[in-house]
Design a protein around this nucleic acid. Structure first.
Lengths: 346, 346
DNA sequence: ATGAAAGCGCTAACAG
DNA sequence: CTGTTAGCGCTTTCAT
């Protein structure tokens, strides 16, 4: 193995000079800097990560804690993970991948052993068992998702309330009067995952504000459950003309079922989804959708964590403003005798 | 920070005794072992990862190198990643996540700096730029996928040739005489990714063996490209009754399009997919499919890598035998005047 | 602008 | 069965 001493000898300087050349923590004359860098390249020197961590008390590694039981759509998760790795590398850090099967103890382990300097925790629930651990760890962390008590924590997430509102706003603007939200599986609401509730709250508020008729239907993504949900929805609200789908795997089955039933999208039924752009564009018709900016979330999370490692005391909650992209799945509602349009012209 | 010296003092033993209690590398009396373990718990001691790596020349971390430009289906990738983490933790190792945007240099960096002891490299191509680097690194590695020259490398993958053959066999057994493979996007074949070629080779061989008519159609997953591909397929081979789909994102669009065209599955057209079980079960009708055992691949890869870290000199290629699960998307072909059934009874 | 040297916390000989 | 001790390779004071 090539050590810093080898490089120092080769360059005719002391080990500390090599170290400082690498870290830039004190000024080095251009001449020696060049010589050292040449020696480094000539010998193929790579500082030993463990030795560096031991001496400097910094591992230059951040933990990325993924949920095992993922309610987040998998592609979104993956996109997030890769953007975190890329962003971390941009700040000279590596990423240690953790799943939740060790539980909170896993976080304690990697933090206490100085394997990682900081943690990024995904899919945070309203009452999340990992949060007390995070608080006691004394290491910078950023949560993706918003728990009940954000005291002393940095959280970052999509503004799901705004997303729900945007969907309702868009339908209202198009003239829809009766709308519905097809949501996450019931288990997600029971677990009190924040994002699902915030989405429905934002949607419901906007529905009320626009004086629309509308309600929310939790839904499992299995084809038959989607069919059932749509059935009870249409029974309870036969005049519904706009659907908001906050359930990515249910999107395709839903479109199929609507087609089966002879309901055209958007002529008979407008559909808005909360899903990544690529899904929205791959289905037919392309969906008007609020996209989940996984890449940006990842970059922001890493940025926050790096700032905290640099000593910044950021303890805020950042909610990203969602963006609604209009595609071909939404239109004005069909004309209905006795409907608001009829009344308006009467 | 709690150090091994603190624990030793608290337990009234020497640091080395604590170390040996932890590693089990020499026998410790039950009594002291218990005392040490109590002190460890009482003080909340976690060995410093860097110090341990420095002293023992083992980081207890394996790198998982994911492709950024992923031709593998994303859920499969994710499933693989989580199973790797879980399996690695089972062997007291952590997982460092790398993407390919650093290129082969990234592998060199983490290996040379002793950040990781071994590497698991996914989505290996026929002529993969990472392979020469892997060879020179002198660290255990396991490739997921099979490159052109496997000399001195351990590879593990699904036996795609067998998978292709199984699909053709199943259709032949049901009595189909004209079949086709809808494959990966053209770019995948151009890049000479091994698995796509092996799949088509296995399929083509079996087709020949059964004296069927059949050919392969590369296909992009975009809805319109699927429609096009199906069109030219039906033009070239109007009597086709069995489709094998090796293209996960194309599965749903394909089923839609068949439905649009009034072709019932499986009455008019049998469909087999190469995809994870959950996809096969979520679509309608549930698909007869060869599943990609991502979880098992991950576990096996970690097992192999651990064996190599223990000094085993395994340099073989392991191909997992695929399993075809019959569901509702395959059946005997429709009766056709002038077809083989007619001839047989003539 | 550079060197010398003292650790960082742990493991693994070596010594009993 | 247990203790003593010499590093592992690097960073960072403290000197100059």
């Amino acid at each position: 193995m090539v050590t810093i001493a080898d490089v120092a000898r080769h360059a005719g300087v002391s080990p500390s000079t090599v170290s400082y050349t690498l870290s830039g923590r004190r000024s080095i004359s251009e001449a020696t800097k060049r010589r050292v860098e040449q020696s480094i390249r000539a010998l193929g020197y790579h500082p030993h990560a463990g030795a560096r961590a031991l001496a400097s008390a910094r591992a230059s590694v951040v933990a990325l804690v993924l949920p095992l039981r993922s309610d987040m759509h998998v592609p979104v998760l993956m996109q997030f993970a890769t953007s975190v790795v890329t962003a971390a590398r941009g700040s000279d850090h590596d990423v240690l991948l953790l799943t939740n099967d060790e539980g909170p103890a896993g976080l304690r382990r990697v933090a206490a052993s100085s394997l990682v300097d900081a943690l990024i925790v995904m899919d945070v629930e309203w009452h999340d068992a990992r949060i007390p651990v995070l608080r006691e760890l004394g290491r910078p962390s950023v949560l993706i998702g918003v728990p009940a008590d954000t005291q002393g924590l940095s959280c970052i997430d999509l503004d799901f309330a705004a997303a729900g509102a945007q969907c309702a706003d868009h339908l209202a603007d198009l003239g829809h009067r009766s709308v519905a939200l097809i949501g996450q599986p019931p288990a997600v609401y029971e677990r009190e995952t924040g994002f699902a509730r915030r989405m429905t709250a934002g949607f419901t508020d906007a529905v009320r504000r626009h004086r629309l008729t509308g309600s929310c239907y939790p839904c499992s993504p299995a084809r038959d459950r989607v069919r059932e949900t749509l059935g009870s929805l249409l029974a309870a609200q036969p005049d519904v003309t706009g659907l908001v789908v906050h359930n990515e795997p249910a999107v395709a089955p839903l479109l199929d079922i609507l087609r089966e039933q002879g309901r055209r999208v958007p002529e008979d039924m407008s559909v808005i989804a909360l899903c990544p752009d690529d899904l929205a564009e791959q289905v037919s018709p392309p969906l008007t959708a609020v996209s989940i900016p996984a890449g940006e979330l990842g970059r922001l999370a890493v940025g926050l964590v790096m700032d905290k490692l640099d000593g910044a005391e950021i303890m805020e909650t950042v909610l990203l403003t969602p963006e609604l992209t209009v595609r071909s799945s939404t239109a004005a509602p069909p004309y209905r005798a006795g409907g608001p349009a009829a009344r308006a012209s009467a």
